[in-house]
Nucleic acid binder design. Sequence first.
DNA 1: CTCTAGCAGCTTGTATGGTAGTATGAAAGC
DNA 2: GCTTTCATACTACCATACAAGCTGCTAGAG
Lengths: 249, 249
Amino acid sequence: MKLDEKAPIAPQIYAQLREAIIRMRLLPGQPLSEKDIATMFGSSRQPAREALIKLAEAGLVRILPQRGTFVMKVSTRAVGDVRFVREAVEVAVARTCCRIAPGEALDRLHGLIERQKQAAAAGDQDGFLTLDEAFHRGLAEAIDCAEAWRVVENGKAQMDRVRYLSLPEASPMTLLIEQHEDILAAIRAKDEEAATAAMRVHLREILLALPRLAAQRPELFDDEPLPAHAEDLRAAQHAGTPPRIITRT
Amino acid sequence: MKLDEKAPIAPQIYAQLREAIIRMRLLPGQPLSEKDIATMFGSSRQPAREALIKLAEAGLVRILPQRGTFVMKVSTRAVGDVRFVREAVEVAVARTCCRIAPGEALDRLHGLIERQKQAAAAGDQDGFLTLDEAFHRGLAEAIDCAEAWRVVENGKAQMDRVRYLSLPEASPMTLLIEQHEDILAAIRAKDEEAATAAMRVHLREILLALPRLAAQRPELFDDEPLPAHAEDLRAAQHAGTPPRIITRT
DNA sequence: CTCTAGCAGCTTGTATGGTAGTATGAAAGC
DNA sequence: GCTTTCATACTACCATACAAGCTGCTAGAG
């Protein structure tokens, strides 16, 4: 693990550990003592400790005083909660985009979708995920609301962990790109209802994969159920669109 | 400044400083060095530092490396951004309450409103603000979404600072209580549109007081304007309801 | 053999020392 | 008098040392 000595150390450790947890290089349950991390990064305990505190606030690790710090299991419940908040914020962002987003910002979003198509064609999953994140950040920037992206980004770690588990199989890139296009088209048409619907569809995709993954890899998930507000949506989703893949391909 | 020696120190320092900043006991621009805070609380610099980092993440102080840490001015822009996110989340919470909130939770909310009336009658502004916070937390608890409250609470500090500045005059307690009653009534009627509208009205109150306060106490505010998404709402609000006070009293 | 008490070996939490960088102000040169 | 330079005092940041607490093993008593 290497890091830039000129820049502040704690944020760098935080970023790298966060990445490692999201990508499942650090598995749930693994202990992460301050001392280990310090030696791992060649720093003192102090920056390592500050990074762990931030990870705990993001819900990625659990600090048990005088006992240890451990990578948390993926919590079905936490993912559901974060997803709820994210849908609320991003729907509001999309609606507001319909009202006040300047044309240049929308053009930039269009450009991002084009690059997503290239990444999908090249099979570049990593690049695609980066562009996907850029698209959602771009929506918040289009209405000049930095806080909206900050909140979404904070919770995204929980959802991204699920996403990396389900990478090759579920939610093919082409489908997600179509959903991005639907969102942008609705915004361009200044149709707030359509933008709301398109964003909701996009952000509820994860509810389809989540229960299946939890059953498939129980050692990575805690055993809490979906919160009621998410279970409500999942049931409706399941009833409403029987063959999702077939309808889009 | 006193604190419990048995409990972890850093969170206590954070809570007390946060309170002091919100209540304008610590004014914008005031330097808060690690050493000063440490001696002030009789602790070492370490917990003080961790508290300051958390305050910086909440947007209440600004840490300038190797220069100092200072209480931030109230940012009209930050308040607008936080308000946007809060409206998005709490509207979604209220809508979902219409669908799945259990009756007992709604009864608890009714009880909170009753206690708010008592506090208003007694002129207990401090108690009222505590109950107001409990009401909004209660909505999130009614749909069992802890994350929703966490996000709202995080941003609330920014808005509460404005609220404390405008305490006696603007937004009389009776008006806010009526708005709470409107929200709860809409939820009881399972009317999602009415609940949405009531919550939006409630959370847009601050947009009326904010520009006036910024002009009145310029030394406490930075000079950034309202973000576009908020200015859009403020203008509509101003045009739609000319004499707010008169219509309600 | 079972159970309990105590002792290492961990952990996080706290305190303190040292370092690099910045602002301030005084003194020297133009 | 004005500008530039340098010394000083301050800061946050990092490293290290100490203290308090929990876990788990081990040894000894019943």
